[in-house]
Simulated scan of single mutants.
Amino acid sequence: MMLPKEIRQKSSELFPNDLEKQKIFCMGAAFSLGKDLSDFEAEEQQAEVVEEVKPQEEIYICQEALDMWLAYKKEKHQTYKPRGLEALKKKLLQLSSGNPEYAKVIVEYSMGNNYAGLFAPKNNSINSYEQQQRTFNKINSILAD
């Protein structure tokens, strides 16, 4: 016996961040509807099996920079659709060569110039990011000696 979909939706509305309270709410509803709680527990076990099969979310190495950019676009009341978001992720990885710190530099540069998209700083500035990193590493090695 399945619990009505509306009851399950209501439990997630009432307790969006507490799965245990959602379960208790659903069990109370099942009991009040005269359903056998052992049937309810069997449904829960089936749901757990289905959840285990779901693939884990992919890890995106430039997530912090991406979140900064998406917050900036949200402030401007602009959003990305799924395909656009995937293209944005690829572009950020390409521009930053997979370096999360440089991805933040790209995002800050693009936000600072009020660009509609992501653009890497030009290399004709005094120091490119890579040169700054090499200088920083040299200073650290000198100080370590």
Rank of each mutant, 00 (worst) to 15 (best):
M1V: 13
M1R: 11
P4Y: 04
I7F: 05
Q9N: 08
K10P: 00
S12T: 10
E13V: 13
L14Q: 06
L14N: 05
L14M: 13
L14R: 07
P16T: 06
P16E: 06
N17L: 15
N17C: 09
D18G: 03
D18Y: 06
D18C: 07
E20P: 00
K21I: 05
K21C: 10
Q22H: 04
I24M: 07
I24W: 01
F25A: 03
C26D: 02
A29F: 03
G34F: 07
K35R: 15
D36Q: 08
L37I: 08
S38R: 14
D39N: 12
E41Q: 15
E43L: 14
E43P: 01
E44L: 14
Q45P: 01
Q45N: 07
Q46E: 09
A47H: 12
E48C: 08
V50P: 01
E51H: 08
P55I: 11
P55K: 14
Q56R: 13
Q56P: 02
Q56W: 06
E57M: 12
E58A: 09
I59Q: 06
I61S: 00
I61F: 00
I61C: 01
C62R: 00
A65M: 05
L66W: 00
D67V: 06
D67F: 04
L70I: 14
A71E: 15
Y72P: 00
K74E: 07
E75N: 08
E75C: 04
K76I: 01
H77R: 11
H77Q: 11
H77P: 00
T79N: 03
K81M: 09
P82W: 08
R83T: 13
R83Y: 12
R83S: 14
G84K: 13
G84V: 08
G84R: 08
G84T: 06
L85Y: 12
A87I: 15
K89C: 12
K90M: 13
K90V: 14
K91D: 11
K91Q: 15
L92K: 01
Q94T: 07
Q94A: 09
Q94W: 04
L95Q: 06
G98N: 11
N99D: 15
N99P: 00
N99W: 02
P100M: 05
E101Y: 10
E101I: 14
E101Q: 13
E101C: 07
A103V: 09
A103D: 06
A103C: 15
A103Q: 04
V105I: 13
I106T: 02
V107E: 01
V107G: 01
V107I: 13
E108G: 05
E108R: 13
S110D: 05
M111G: 03
M111V: 14
M111W: 02
N113Y: 13
N113E: 15
N114M: 12
N114D: 10
G117Q: 06
L118I: 09
L118D: 01
F119P: 00
A120I: 05
A120R: 02
A120T: 05
P121H: 12
P121C: 13
P121F: 11
K122V: 10
K122H: 11
N124M: 03
S125M: 10
N127I: 10
N127E: 12
S128K: 04
Y129W: 14
Y129E: 03
Q131H: 04
Q132W: 03
Q132V: 06
Q133P: 00
Q133N: 05
R134H: 02
R134C: 01
T135N: 11
N137T: 05
N137K: 09
K138A: 04
K138D: 02
L143W: 09
L143E: 12
A144D: 04
D145G: 12
D145R: 13
